[in-house]
Amino acid sequence: MSTSPSLTFHDGHSIPQLGYGVYKVDNEVAADLTGQAIDAGYRHIDTAKLYGNEEGVGRAVRAADVPREDLFVTTKLWNDEHAYDDAIAACEASLERLGLDYMDLYLIHWAVPSQGQYVEAWEALVELQKRGLTRSIGVSNFPLAELEEIIAATGVTPVIHQIELHPYFQQRELREAHAQHSILTQSWGPLGQGKSDLLENPVITGIAAAHGATPAQVVLAWHLAHDIVAIPKSATPSRIVENLESVQLQLSPDDIAAIDELDRPDGRAGFDPAQKRD
C-alpha cells in the first residue's frame, strides 16, 4: 500500500501531500468512494459544503479502520456565509454533517472580493481555531491582494492556500508569495481540470512511457516534486489507487524542467478568483 509523504504547516500541524478530492461526487456514493480511498492508503480527504457530500464523507471517516487522528479532513466555508456569526455557524453545521468533533483544516472557499466580507470571514476562522473546532485554517481561491489583506488585518497567516494549479497553469507569482509567508500551496484540479489534452501532451506521455507510469502519475509526481499539496479526484477505483501510487515515482530534474516549460498564459480552466461573484 502506498502512503503519502506529509508537509508541515507553520502552525506545527502536518498535511498528507497527496489527498483524495470529492468534488462532484454524489453524497449517495461519497461514503463508498471515500472508504475505498482510505483503504487504498489515502489519509487526506478534501470536501466542502458546496459539494453536498460532507455527510457521506463523514460516514466513511467514522467507519474507517483507521484512527481518527491518523486521518486529515478538510472542508470549506461557502460564499453566502462570510459574515462572522454565519461563518461560525457554518463550521458547526459542517461538523454536524460530518459527524466529527473537529476538522483538521477549514478553508474560506472563495474570497469573493466584490462581497467585501473576506476579512470578517477570516476573523471567524481564527476564532474557530481558538475554540478547537478546526486544527488549522487556510484559504482557497484568493487573489494575492486579498490574501495579503487578511494577513495584515489579523496578524494571522493561512497555513495553506488552495488554488487551481497544474502544468498548464503554474501560478508562479502566487507560489513565490506563499513561500515568503510560509504558506503551503495546494492544487485543486491538479490533472488539468477542463484542459483535457494535458494528459495527452507529448511531454507528459513521453515521460510516462520512460518511467512505465501513467500520464496522471507523472503530473501528480511533478506536484509532489515542487512541494505542492494535490487532491486529485476520481470515481474509478483503479484510478484512485493509481493516483496514490504516484508517490513512488521519482522524476528526474530534466523531467521536472520539461514539465515546467508547459506553463501557458491562457492555462486557467476555472473561475478567476478576482472575478468570482457568487
Rank of each mutant, 00 (worst) to 15 (best):
A60R: 02
A83S: 14
W110L: 08
E120K: 03
S136D: 04
Q162A: 09
I151L: 09
Y42A: 03
T75L: 01
G52T: 02
N53Q: 07
E149V: 03
Q170H: 06
Y118Q: 11
Y118A: 11
T134Q: 01
A37N: 05
D101S: 11
R43M: 06
E148D: 15
D104Q: 01
W78G: 01
A90V: 09
Q115P: 00
I160H: 02
Q129L: 09
I137S: 00
D70M: 06
R97L: 14
V119Y: 03
Q129F: 11
E148H: 15
I88D: 10
D70V: 05
R68V: 13
T47R: 01
V156E: 11
P158S: 06
I151K: 01
D101Q: 09
I38E: 08
L100G: 04
S136N: 03
N79Y: 13
L71H: 10
A152W: 02
V73N: 00
A63L: 06
E173V: 10
L33S: 04
L98Q: 07
E123P: 07
D80C: 09
E173S: 13
E123R: 15
T157M: 11
L165P: 08
G132L: 01
A124S: 12
Y51M: 01
G99E: 10
Q171S: 15
D85G: 00
H166P: 11
A63D: 12
Q36G: 06
T34L: 00
R135P: 11
A37I: 11
R43A: 08
F142C: 10
V119K: 06
A89L: 11
E164W: 08
A37M: 07
P158R: 13
I137E: 08
A40G: 12
